[in-house]
Design a protein around this nucleic acid. Structure first.
Lengths: 157, 157
DNA sequence: AACAACATATCAGAGCTTTGATAATGAGCA
DNA sequence: TGCTCATTATCAAAGCTCTGATATGTTGTT
């Protein structure tokens, strides 16, 4: 374990404000950050990032989506999706075809390599997701799921 | 509400896989993303980002920390902290002084403007954090807090 | 005293994400 | 028909975050 040369008795993760007594926002960010890092590590040797995995998953479920559709689905901006889609396109995992009806829309679909990579990525992410539920019984899982959905929902002001 | 010109019956936030039946990792990312966006909006007119707020808060609690200390505390890399600290320095909210004992360390502290901005930011973030607990009774809050801490903790492999 | 190990800081490059601005396409209405 | 509006896509700039590499300073060992 790394240690500062000038010890100041800083709290370790899980202690003090970094534990159950911390601010909810801080705890949420901390948890999401830890999860994202594990996901990045799990996908690293596939040359796939978590956002890219998300986009591939969405395209597998709904082939032919536009960039704007993906943005709405992922709660991201069209610009953000454009960057991710651009990188996936460069990697040959997706294709962009002019939409048959609406001229400006680019319909995005998975390529065969895209499907292959997604299949490999899926099992790893499944394992990771299962680990998130370790030590959580059915009742508590429901509580957590409901809370996450509530926080994610847009505020009704 | 925006709508695609080529309707495909995509699920809305909170429905289907985007609701309580979704993958935990997706729900976690969705929730953290929504929270971060609200935090950014709340701090926007102070010209402060959520990571910058986090760093200022840590410096208020532990003045004279080094960049490496901040990195450990925030679970970020030293490089990431360097970017954030650089921006805070340019804004005049912090100062970096050579460490009295350890020559290489730069001891970071808040300036008077830094303290003033932090005070304003705090009340807004407090309001935001309170809203995260809306609809959670004491028992459920404990369940959620425990889960977040568990997820944030490094894996013991 | 010299060397090895470690901690710190920083440079470079990449991807994700945002806001803001610009341009092109299609739909609805006068 | 022509105008206006909504949607789509894209360019630009900024901040956050990472991995990898490099240089400096301190500590501990030989």
């Amino acid at each position: 374990m790394s240690k500062s040369p000038v010890p100041m008795f800083l709290p370790a993760p899980g202690e003090g404000k970094r534990g159950e007594d911390g601010h909810m926002g801080y705890l949420l960010r901390q948890a999401a950050h830890a999860y994202r890092q594990r996901a990045e590590t799990a996908l690293a040797d596939l040359d796939l990032t978590p956002p890219q995995f998300t986009v591939l998953t969405m395209l597998a479920a709904y082939p032919g989506l536009s960039g704007a559709d993906l943005a709405r689905l992922a709660l991201l901006t069209p610009q953000t999706i454009a960057v991710i889609v651009g990188n996936l396109d460069r990697a040959g995992l997706i294709t962009r075809e002019p939409h048959p009806v609406h001229g400006r829309i680019l319909a995005i679909s998975l390529t065969a390599p895209g499907r292959a990579v997604l299949a490999k990525a899926r099992s790893r992410m499944q394992t990771l997701d299962d680990s998130l539920l370790a030590g959580l019984d059915a009742d508590h899982e429901t509580v957590v799921r409901r809370w996450l959905v509530t926080v994610a929902l847009p505020t009704e002001t």
